[in-house]
Design a protein around this nucleic acid. Structure first.
Lengths: 123, 123
DNA sequence: AATAATGGTTACTTTTTTTATACTATAAAA
DNA sequence: TTTTATAGTATAAAAAAAGTAACCATTATT
């Protein structure tokens, strides 16, 4: 009897999820929030650093192009809302959607895990 | 008064973490678990699908090379332990380290969020 | 008349990730 | 003696992600 069979009851949940939904739900989530600058962008928007230029000043290592690309992806994934004002010079305000807001507890766990398991070593 | 100043108290936590630890703790965590096949590999190891060939059979779309690369990264990051038995044919068993085990609640949240916010749409 | 401010876009290059294919060692079993 | 099993390596090619730099439109200010 193979281990694959022996333990089969133990991982039906995940395997069934994958079959049922056509992919791993964890990977799917990580795909949305895992972009190089996305956690930081979402975080800053969540504390009302919500304009393109403001975000850039907070993240000087993120190029204009990357900022645009990541913001557009976040928008397309429904995590961020982009509101354009018909003014000159242009004014655009980014806010979290409800879906974006719902990530808060997740981010808080990810952050704490990172502090406890990765970053603290460097102190 | 700029918004950056106005809201400064509101995001000192994250900004201070970044300064204190030299990076965003969320990004740091995502870097460890965000590899294309890592969630699935960690999951299968966690349910004792713990040999190279078994993992391959469970994830036929992950090439041998990718499997090796991801397993080595997980090992180097201290999430997975690799035990080699001096047998022929070779026998290697992968297990979660304590650090790897500590990811469980995180994965459970990531999975639920993905089911609720991404995958359910496809049903 | 030139400059600044905002929020980008476009084209091109470099870097990183992923894929594909072939190859390895050893002992046991057919 | 050829095949099977295990757990990988090595090398090159293709694809995806990220970086760089120049450009754009409009209005107000200098």
């Amino acid at each position: 009897m193979k281990i694959e069979e022996k333990n089969s009851e133990r991982f039906t949940t995940m395997v069934e999820n994958i079959k049922k939904y056509g992919g791993c739900p964890v990977s799917a989530t990580l795909k949305l929030i895992g972009g190089k600058w996305k956690p930081l962008i979402l975080y800053f928007i969540s504390v009302d650093v919500n304009r393109f230029g403001q975000l850039q000043r907070m993240m000087p290592d993120c190029s204009k192009r990357m900022m645009t690309v990541q913001l557009r992806e976040l928008e397309n994934d429904g995590l961020v809302h982009r509101e354009v004002f018909a003014e000159v010079p242009p004014k655009v305000i980014y806010t979290l959607t409800e879906k974006g807001e719902s990530l808060r507890p997740l981010f808080s766990m990810l952050s704490q895990w990172g502090i406890d398991n990765i970053l603290k070593k460097k102190v």
